[in-house]
Simulated assay, not measured.
Amino acid sequence: MIKLIECPRDAMQGFPNFIDTAIKAAYINQLLQIGFDTIDFGSFVSPKAIPQMRDTAEVLEYLDLFESKSKLLAIVANTRGAEDALHFEQIDYLGFPLSISETFQQRNTNKSIKDAMVAVEEIQNLTEVKGKTLVTYLSMGFGNPYGDPYAPEMVAEFVEQLEQLGVKIISFADTVGTANVDLIKELFELNIQGYPHIEFGAHFHARPDQVEEKVLAAFHAGCLRFDGALKGFGGCPMAKDDLVGNVATEKLIQSLEKEGQTLSLNKQELEEAMKMVDFVFR
């Protein structure tokens, strides 16, 4: 069964104008009506690092979860953030960005990869105690622009370490939109076959004309978990290409439905959310 993860947090976090808390909550409440498996709704990180997410706890208070089947995911960058997030019963998943690139790990979380792996272990233990689930994102999972070492075999080594820690969900992140179809196919086939008990996901950043080929390459390699953001808002500023953003959820849906997949989404509620997007990101 395909799982779609809608990521308003990723869409919003780099937006230059602060989005009012009530507007954030109204938008996320609309997303909760569509039928996505999970909503990546906010993050518990330093407000100095990500000012847009400083009101995540407040947003949570306004969310109406009673009639929604969607689960909530919050991003954390350290153990303290995880402890803060775990105070809220409404949150089902914690997401942690672990990078294949040493340079990006330092830039993104102010940690070395070694220290970040220690944080992963600590957060994994905390989530297990609280009955929650850790989602580990392997940033720069398809290469990096810094000249740091990279190979698919390195990704597999990271997966092996995470498997030993008991991590059950790993999402490969194409952080700067450089993944090609062959690499996507290789990476997912290698790891899905090697670790059948781990759920692997795809968090792609892509130009609009590359969305379908990347999504279908992962799907045909066995990936059943996909992140997206309506209209493709967000993405990594280090891509240095204004057209490289998050995979537009509507294009993701279209690509998978063309393959005959039934996604069980409320299309009317999806249309309403699409109407809200331009108001939220004005």
Rank of each mutant, 00 (worst) to 15 (best):
Q254V: 13
E271F: 09
E189M: 09
L190G: 06
A273K: 07
G35I: 03
A26D: 15
R225P: 04
E153K: 02
V45W: 00
D278T: 14
S139Y: 02
D37R: 09
L216N: 11
S171H: 02
F142D: 06
I113A: 07
L183E: 05
L162A: 11
E122N: 15
K132P: 10
G35L: 06
T136Q: 12
Q164D: 14
E257R: 04
G222D: 05
Q193A: 13
L126G: 02
S68L: 03
K231W: 05
E6K: 10
E250W: 00
L63Q: 07
E213I: 01
K258W: 06
H220F: 06
T103A: 07
Q13H: 08
K214D: 12
K185Y: 09
T178V: 14
F279D: 14
V76W: 01
A248L: 01
K168F: 06
E153N: 12
N110I: 03
S101C: 10
G141V: 04
N246C: 01
V155Y: 07
G201N: 05
T175P: 12
Q106P: 01
D209C: 08
H205M: 04
C236S: 08
K24W: 04
E189G: 11
R107Y: 07
L190R: 14
K231I: 07
Q90C: 14
M154N: 13
